[in-house]
């Protein structure tokens, strides 16, 4: 995943979440009652949907933009390997 995907994903995710919160909690953008919730999802639970939207957008955008530099890819590889966990680092 690259920076273009990550940034756009986060921006869209937080905006969708804020929109849903403001619409159904503060009655902005036309408001709405419990019956108007999308698929019966409460504003409290909508963060999860926004997170999924974030991921989908990030993955799609990353497919069409250049991949991250090699050193970053190496960090991602390394961080998953548990070796070195027993060493004192400071």
């Amino acid at each position: 995943m690259n920076k273009e995907g990550a940034i756009l994903g986060m921006v869209v995710g937080i905006l969708v979440m804020l929109f849903y919160m403001m619409k159904f909690k503060f009655d902005w953008f036309g408001g709405g009652s419990k019956e108007d919730w999308w698929f019966g999802i409460s504003p409290e639970g909508f963060g999860t949907i926004a997170m999924i939207i974030n991921f989908i957008i990030s993955i799609i955008i990353s497919r069409f933009t250049p991949s991250p530099p090699n050193d970053v890819q190496e960090i991602v590889e390394n961080i998953r390997i548990p070796s070195g966990a027993g060493k004192a680092t400071h």
Partner: peptide
């Protein structure tokens, strides 16, 4: 983490905004 992993200060700023919220 996001700033370094996505080698971008824009990504860092977006993440800071979300964290402050």
């Amino acid at each position: 983490f996001i700033g370094d992993r996505y080698y971008s200060n824009v990504a860092r700023s977006v993440a800071v905004f979300c964290a402050l919220l």
